[in-house]
Design a binder for these strands. Structure first.
Length: 290
DNA sequence: GTCCAGGCCAGAC
DNA sequence: GTCTGGCCTGGA
């Protein structure tokens, strides 16, 4: 039985949401639900298509729970207040190819993730593959993060054990800035370790970035990562991250040369405009699924 | 062994 | 401004 049930939710599919490349701390359960960590919160989230219900179980809230507060958080995190039907209609209207891409990932939603966590996650993602990114992030939480207190005592603890989930936060900027590359050795970040430490230092000094230029100014952040942070951390839906998969899909669907990043960016701006980032998610999911 | 994975930096032109 | 080589790591 779930703690929270949100009714009448359309355009929602956990497989699409948690497997479209925007997050790295969620894992799929045998029953099709997903369990993951966001900040200091741990939850299991499932969807019942027939009833159009989102089921949410926040593990660390058991015993002393404030369900209303919890629901508010997850409703925002899952971007349930946005009308994706409208977005999809708008994107597919003048583009039959996009319509096909949307059909493959019709239940995608852009999560409202914490900016700092998005920054370190996508610095780690560069020149890297998803399983290893996930491993690095989990090891980073073990080495530099903190335990997430579980108010539910045994019950929550037992459930976590069953899930094989390690309830740890990611380190904040202050913590990272205080570390040396050597301290992060076990995390096996490779050359990205110094970027993370530097990002911590730069953000302590200048505060969190507010726009693309400020994100790009961080050490170890180039155009691709900056666009990911813009889209997933700053919620700027005009961002259009171009990675190897997007290059592939842009070649296959629209005939671009894989090296023509500039052309792709211009195309996205012209055709998808303020919805470029959401279009990118459908394209990414479509090509990955093929 | 080689190649590649959701790139970026530094240095050369 | 644009292009190239090198880079940590792990799995195919």
């Amino acid at each position: 039985m779930s703690d929270i049930i949100i009714e009448n939710v359309k355009d929602f599919n956990p497989d699409h949401i948690f497997d479209c490349g925007q997050c790295f701390r969620w894992r799929r359960e045998a029953d099709g639900s997903w369990t993951g960590i966001a900040g200091k919160r741990i939850a299991n989230i499932g969807y019942v298509p027939g009833l159009k219900e989102v089921h949410i179980n926040e593990l660390d809230k058991k015993g002393s729970r404030d369900l209303k507060e919890s629901e508010e958080f997850w409703r925002n995190y899952l971007d349930l207040n946005r009308d994706y039907g409208k977005i999809k209609r708008s994107l597919s209207k003048k583009d039959p190819l996009m319509k096909e891409a949307i059909a493959s990932g019709e239940g995608i939603r852009i999560l409202n993730q914490d900016l700092w966590e998005t920054i370190i996650s996508f610095i780690i993602s560069q020149n890297n593959n998803i399983p290893r990114i996930k491993g690095c992030i989990e090891r980073l939480s073990e080495v530099a993060g903190e335990n997430i207190p579980l108010t539910g005592g045994k019950r929550a603890g037992k459930e976590l054990e069953d899930l094989g989930l390690n309830p740890r936060t990611l380190p904040g900027p202050k913590k990272l800035a205080s570390m040396r590359e050597e301290d992060l050795k076990e995390v096996r970040l490779g050359y990205r370790a110094k970027y993370l430490i530097k990002a911590g230092e730069e953000i302590l000094e200048r505060g969190l970035p507010n726009n693309y230029e400020e994100v790009l100014a961080l050490t170890g952040v180039g155009p691709k990562v900056a666009n990911c942070i813009g889209l997933f951390g700053l919620h700027n839906e005009a961002s259009f991250p171009i990675d190897v998969w997007v290059k592939r899909v842009m070649k296959e669907l629209y005939g671009f040369d894989e090296g023509d990043v500039k052309g792709m960016a211009e195309f996205a701006e012209k055709n998808f405009g303020k919805l470029s980032g959401i279009a990118q998610q459908y394209l990414f999911y479509y090509i990955r699924e093929k």
